[in-house]
Design a protein around this nucleic acid. Structure first.
Lengths: 153, 153
DNA sequence: ATTTCATGTAACACATAAAGTTACATGAAA
DNA sequence: TTTCATGTAACTTTATGTGTTACATGAAAT
C-alpha cells in the first residue's frame, strides 16, 4: 500500500514557517521538501480554510502561520488536510448480508477502531510547539558536536 | 487512500472453507466474495506456502484448511499475505538530514509504532475459531428470528 | 500605469498498488 | 482422453497521491 505523506510534509512545512517568522513563498517551502510549489499551494489550501495559515499575494507575500504553535495540534493539521484515512486495511464491504463477513467485520472493526482512536488521541495531544521544542533540542545537540551553527535549514 | 481488503477477504474465505469441511474450488470461493477465481488463487498462494491451506488439482480438488481454526490467528493470515502495511500514513522520507524532518518523524513515528503494535497484538490474539464462534452466534440469532435455517451461505 | 512577484486553480501526466481479466500450461480424477 | 481444477504470466482497470504546465488574479514595487 502506498503511504500518504501529506501530514508529515505539512508538519515539516509548518515548522519551517514558524522558524522563519516571515512569510515564505510556495517556492521556498517546496524547496524544503524537494517538491513542486503547486503541491504546496494545493496542500495548504485546506489549512488556510481552517484558519491555521494565511497567504498573501504579490511582493513580500507568501505563507504565514495564523496561530501560535502551542495552539495547533497534529490532529488540527490532520483534519485540515481532510482527515485522510489512518489505516491501510479496510473491510471488503460495509454492511454485508453474509453472516461470515459480518463476523469478520466485527473482529477487524474492533481492532481498527481501537487503532484509529489511539492515533487520533495522540494527534490531538501533540502540539506543534512540542515538535519545535524537539527540533531545538536536536539543533543544540548538533551545535555541541560541530562548532559552527546555522539556524537556517 | 485506497484500502487493502485482502485480509478481510481472506478471513471470509477461510471461514467458508471451515464451514464447508470439504474442498472448495477457487470459483466457489470467488462467488462468496463476488470476485474472480484468479484473485482467489493469487491471494491463497501465500497461505499455501505458509502451510495454512492446501490445494488439490483435478476432480474433487480445491482448497482446504491445513490446520485447525483454533491454531490460526489473524496475525498468521496477515503474515501469510506478506505483511501488508497496516497504516495509511507514512514519513515523507526515512533518515532525513533536515532536523525539522527528524523531529516530525520522531513525533509521528512514535504514534505509528504504537498503533502498529496495538494492531499486531490484537491480530496475534484473535484466532479463526473466535470468528467462527461469533458467526455461529449470529447464525443462531438469525434462526431465532426466521423459522427456517440454511447453514449454507 | 506597468512590471514583477506571488497565490489560486484547472487540467493534465505520472507512479504505484490493489483488483479484475484473459489465456494457457500443468496435473489429477473420471 | 476428456474433464476439471490449480498455477501463473501478462495485461487491463481503478483509485489516489504526487508532479507539472499553463494561466488567471491580485498586490506591491518601480
Amino acid at each position: 500500500m502506498k503511504q500518504d505523506s501529506r501530514l508529515s510534509a505539512t508538519l515539516h512545512v509548518l515548522l519551517h514557517m514558524a522558524d522563519r517568522g516571515a512569510p515564505m513563498t510556495s517556492e521556498e517551502l517546496a524547496a524544503c521538501l524537494g517538491t513542486n510549489p503547486v503541491v504546496i499551494r494545493r496542500t495548504m489550501a485546506g489549512l488556510r480554510e481552517t484558519g491555521l495559515v494565511r497567504s498573501e499575494k504579490g511582493h513580500g507575500g507568501g505563507w504565514t502561520l495564523a496561530r501560535a504553535l502551542d495552539t495547533i495540534t497534529l490532529g488540527d493539521v490532520h483534519r485540515a488536510l481532510g482527515e485522510p484515512a489512518l489505516l491501510a486495511l479496510g473491510h471488503r464491504s460495509e454492511n454485508p448480508q453474509c453472516l461470515v463477513e459480518q463476523a469478520v467485520n466485527a473482529a477487524l472493526g474492533e481492532a481498527f477502531v481501537e487503532a484509529e482512536a489511539l492515533l487520533a488521541n495522540r494527534f490531538d495531544r501533540v502540539r506543534l510547539s512540542d515538535l519545535a521544542a524537539d527540533f531545538s533540542r536536536r539543533f543544540d545537540e548538533r551545535r555541541q558536536i560541530h562548532a559552527k551553527h546555522d539556524h537556517t535549514l
